[in-house]
Design a protein around this nucleic acid. Sequence first.
DNA 1: TTGTACGCGTTATCAC
DNA 2: GTGATAACGCGTACAA
Lengths: 323, 323
Amino acid sequence: MAGVSPATVSRVLNGQGPVREATRRRVLEAVEALGFTPNGLARGLAKGVTRTIGLVLPDIANPYFPALARGVEDAARAAGFAVILGNSDNDPEQEAAHIRVMRERLVDGLIIASSGQPQRLPALVGEVPTVLIDRRVEGWPADSVSTDNRLGGRLAVAHLLARGRRRIAHLGGPAGVASAADRALGFSDALREAGLEPDPRLVSQGPFDFASGYERTRALLESGVDFDAIFAANDLLAVGAVQACQDAGLEVPGRVAVVGFDDILLARLVRPRLTTVLQPAYRVGALAWERLASRIAARAAGGGAAAPVDVQLTPRLVVRESA
Amino acid sequence: MAGVSPATVSRVLNGQGPVREATRRRVLEAVEALGFTPNGLARGLAKGVTRTIGLVLPDIANPYFPALARGVEDAARAAGFAVILGNSDNDPEQEAAHIRVMRERLVDGLIIASSGQPQRLPALVGEVPTVLIDRRVEGWPADSVSTDNRLGGRLAVAHLLARGRRRIAHLGGPAGVASAADRALGFSDALREAGLEPDPRLVSQGPFDFASGYERTRALLESGVDFDAIFAANDLLAVGAVQACQDAGLEVPGRVAVVGFDDILLARLVRPRLTTVLQPAYRVGALAWERLASRIAARAAGGGAAAPVDVQLTPRLVVRESA
DNA sequence: TTGTACGCGTTATCAC
DNA sequence: GTGATAACGCGTACAA
């Protein structure tokens, strides 16, 4: 329609190479008139770049992740990248399946909030630039961004100890999840620093949800083992714990104090308001994109593999009413 | 490596055409040994199909949408489709930008929880099979799945009326959002059925978030206009309203009763527990995929445009403590 | 049953 | 400043 070759159209649309202003305008008019849109697949095939990344999360329905997802989506979009979303349910098989699917679509990069066996990840990911969230894999040069979960656990338990609590229970996350394990370590750290020994009967592992928090607290109550505080590995568990205590007639925080982790919206809205450890989810997402973007850029520039960067955010204790 | 032509590899991988069992095995072994993965872009270019869909939502961080997103992701993945996610913030420009980006990537279909001017959508979407969530566009043969928002609003207000409330306020959603408008209609319906006239001073519009609910309720309180109940267009608004009432020393539900909309997790966890209208978010997502899948299949089969299907889910009132 | 050759819609490298 | 033309990696008639 503009009376030019495909090559010229390409040059106009990409702003590459010299094009006479007059032809340039003719082409743009034709593009407009035809509503022409370049075929991204063909472009990707020719350039080896898709401007698309993959984001795999345990579960977007878990209140911690939507903010994180927005963080990466906002930042990625600003840079002209689209994001493919996958939920793994903390299942290594699903995680692997998502990664495969994304690689087939030739994503330029991957952001993974991993769960299971990290040893499998390097092979799955291959040469694709990758940023890990809440997990590092020793000996694998991938970037990571995470909050210092161990410190967060220490903060939470130290607060409880400072309030005079001595028999502190821990509602842990799922077995094999790194962030959960680190929070449990922080729990033990704080106790030992105070000269106390963790009581294994007061520690449990399980899914990161409300029902699990409720059930495990009830079980604790029924076990008869004495405790005067609970550190839950996330806010959902904490809210479940509060509920279970209240239903059993135990006042919170009077009889048992509760501290959560994450500081999701919910923490501010329940009564008593939840004391918790703030993790800046949106920022984690945005920073993960930032790391990934620089990896992608380096790769495009043919740069060799730079040393991995571990961004570690500092958690902050938010004292409200539950402890 | 298997000593065969590319064509044969293709036949093996796609299960098309005849292949001798022996060659078939040789090929599969080579594929395994090399870790070969077909290039999805090239495949898409050749077949005109990407097995990828786009999902555009107002805001994944709004608690109603994560469950919906999981509904579509789970269902789509089961069918071998990946999903690209986009947040529009109820901004027509962002929405349009997402749709363009997705079309460039040749998505096979689109699921859109739209906000603004629906008139623009047909042009933006073009020939791409599309399912609308919570909105129909007259004269545009696109499928839609939604809950009956008007009925939901009626249910909520009828409950308030049955409890003896007469001066009912309405915290509406953003102007121009169809679901919000329908809930407001339901509000008026119920009032008129009871022989009451809505008081414009008790009705407002605004964003679907906690802060807005809190602020607008406070403004209501300060205006001095009397009211004994609030119907909020979503749960976040409702929780904000409850908070504002409590902070002003008004007991909920004694002095003012509050009903929300959506039944997000939060509704069950605040005190008093929120009475609300349940909208099955996960199912909406799954059904939206189902509609889209059949459109995509019909298109692949070369079928003409069938009449649009509007799936309408029935909302249900969940009575808890706030009303 | 298998291989050859073309087309899918771009970009990049050359000529001109 | 512009146009041929060869990749990019697949699917698929068609020939063998």
